[in-house]
Design a protein around this nucleic acid. Structure first.
Length: 595
DNA sequence: TTAGGGTTAG
């Protein structure tokens, strides 16, 4: 009956409304108007007694728009007969997708309390809510109910929901266990597993899972699989693998959606090949603010500030205005390129022209911008003036600037501010110790080190990734379990010899510990990027660029050494560190020693 | 006798 009414009404009003579950909700305001008319007719015609029709009405109202949930709830609670499971599920589903996912859980509990039995449709909706709430204990209880009602082994949707739930909560081992136990796995189950590995930062595992998927004749990878794989490549900085994945997408004639294109642009930029990123970006026909952001953010971290701003102008010509995230990239572009005036100008225009309220992240970029330019007092003034409580990140930007511009007093004060906010902040402890070390105040260095020891605060080890023939190798500072140990050590000696001929003196002041000079030099030569560059030089042909991804900022000594290595060995060396890219060529770096 | 799981930034 409802279907008939809908068709009739569509003819009359010429609106794009149907009661099909997969309809578009773009016209939700006219949609709800139409549903209300149907409701009125049902009341007038006695149709409210028809449980199937009313069920469809509740479902359609509940999923039309979260704002209509109150209306759906009122129909649901005023029924003159007990709701059926379809109605319960529809209400749970509506709340699970809304900004009040807890309501979905309350309804689910109420349903059980009143003696209604869930069915296989109920649980995916309940897990949707659990995912939103990121509540592991709650999910565990629901999982218990699934076992109790005997649904765990019989439904692919429930199994995927479970994998996805544990993956979303960061319990990747549980997700993997459940995935392995799934009786039915389709591409969505595999994608849930991939998402879990992405969520846990286990990017190598993403690539492994993808390789297994490729060998399975019963699984056809899709766009969502590729989004996870491309993201993994970009995090690993694995350009060769990323290019192969791009070719795979083309070869298999997979649809190059805007999302996938954006992910590839981002991947090329993050893998250090800004040229390939620009090339693909220019070939993309459809672009949204995220696509532009990937491109502009990429240019920013490569230090190409002028080019980034030129793309911003092009974007605006295309009718897209910068949003809040884009402004962080714009300010970051200005910061990395030393464009202080332009950056400050954008901060002013953000609110006045574009109506985007500056957030703590934007102010953090400005502190960085001023700090890098050596305008430390202005940066400090800004922190004291911003309309929100400065966080450790904002103070951290100033601390880095204090170190770079050798302002010991301010550095000490800033590190102390950070430790007030987060007494266990490792970076603040290390920086404070470095500040004291650079001033030769060893007793205070010891004091900081003892505090760190007492509180169990450890500096995360430096780690560098390098890709060779499609395989990613990881080097960790001081870890001697890397491949080709003997060869690498020989190469490190050779590098040290050639560097010293070129007049390189190791910059040992970055090391805070009160150890003798020789040991300091030894510690520097064991930095992860040094191990990776030695590995790269041994295993690649003359002239091939070497790309390295580092988890921390590159230190001063490694930076000056890399410049000379690029000259001595005539190689382009591209290093992505925690804050930007460094392209070392012919003895200089693209960051112009400004990082 | 209706519907369900995997996709978006700093």
């Amino acid at each position: 009956m409802l279907q008939r009414l809908a068709v009739k009404s569509r003819g009359k009003s010429n609106s794009n409304i149907s009661l099909s579950p997969n309809r578009s909700f773009s016209s939700s305001s006219s949609n709800i108007k139409h549903l209300k008319q149907l409701h009125a007719k049902l009341i007038r015609n006695g149709g409210m007694e028809d449980i199937l029709t009313v069920g469809k009405l509740i479902a359609d109202v509940a999923i039309s728009n979260p704002l209509n949930l109150i209306y759906a709830r009122s129909i649901f609670s005023k029924l003159t007969y007990p709701p059926n499971i379809f109605m319960w599920n529809s209400m749970i589903r509506g709340y699970a997708h809304s900004s009040a996912p807890k309501e979905a859980i309350f309804l689910y509990c109420e349903m059980l309390q009143k003696g209604f039995l869930p069915n296989n449709y109920t649980f995916p909706f309940v897990f949707k809510a659990c995912n939103q709430l990121i509540d592991l204990n709650l999910g565990l209880c629901v999982h218990g109910t699934i076992i109790k009602f005997g649904f765990e082994d019989c439904d692919a949707f429930i199994q995927t929901s479970l994998v996805n739930f544990y993956a979303s909560c960061g319990s990747i081992e549980s997700a993997r266990l459940l995935f392995d136990r799934c009786s039915q796995r389709d591409v969505t189950s595999w994608n849930a597993l991939i998402k879990g590995y992405v969520r846990s930062g286990r990017y190598m595992d993403v690539i492994c899972v993808f390789r297994v998927m490729q060998d399975r004749v019963d699984i056809k990878v899709d766009e969502i699989t590729m989004l996870g794989v491309v993201l993994a490549c970009s995090q690993l900085g694995a350009l060769e693998m990323g290019r192969w994945v791009h070719a795979y997408i083309d070869k298999n004639r997979m649809k190059m959606s805007m999302n996938l294109g954006t992910a590839l642009v981002d991947m090329y930029a993050r893998c250090g090949s800004i040229d390939l990123a620009v090339n693909l970006f220019k070939r993309m026909r459809e672009k949204d603010v995220r696509t532009w952001s990937a491109m502009i953010g990429g240019l920013a971290v490569h230090g190409l500030g002028k080019e980034a701003l030129s793309f911003v102008a092009d974007m605006q010509k295309d009718g897209i205005d910068p949003d809040s995230v884009m402004f962080t990239y714009i300010l970051c572009a200005c910061s990395h390129a030393g464009m202080v005036t332009e950056g400050l100008d954008f901060l002013d225009k953000m609110k006045e022209v574009y109506n985007v309220e500056p957030t703590i992240e934007h102010y953090g970029c400005i502190v960085d911008l001023l700090g890098r330019a050596g305008r430390l007092d202005e940066a400090l003034n800004l922190i004291n003036r911003i309309p929100m409580k400065p966080d450790v990140v904002v103070w951290g930007s100033l601390l880095v600037a204090c170190r770079a511009h050798k302002n010991v007093e301010m550095g000490e004060a800033v590190a102390k501010e950070m430790l007030k906010l987060d007494p266990n902040h490792c970076g603040a402890h290390v920086s404070l110790s470095n500040v004291y070390a650079s001033a030769g105040r060893w007793s205070q260095v010891d004091q900081v080190r003892n505090t760190m020891k007492d509180h169990g605060i450890k500096k995360p080890p430096g780690s560098s990734l390098i890709e060779l023939h499609g395989v990613v190798y990881e080097f960790i500072a001081g870890d001697r379990s890397y491949p080709q140990t003997a060869k690498i050590n020989l190469m490190l000696d050779e590098i040290a010899r050639l560097l010293s001929i070129e007049g390189h003196v190791p910059t040992i002041k970055g090391i805070s510990f009160d150890i003798d000079e020789e040991e300091k030099e030894q510690a520097l030569s064991q930095h992860s990027e040094k191990l990776a560059i030695a590995f790269g030089l041994i295993n690649t042909r003359q002239g091939v660029p070497i790309r390295i991804v580092k988890n921390l900022r590159v230190c001063e000594d490694c930076h000056s050494a890399m410049k000379l290595i690029s000259k001595i060995f005539d190689r382009l060396i591209v290093i992505r560190d925690r804050s930007r890219f460094h392209h070392f060529k012919d003895g200089s770096c693209s960051c112009r020693d400004y990082w």
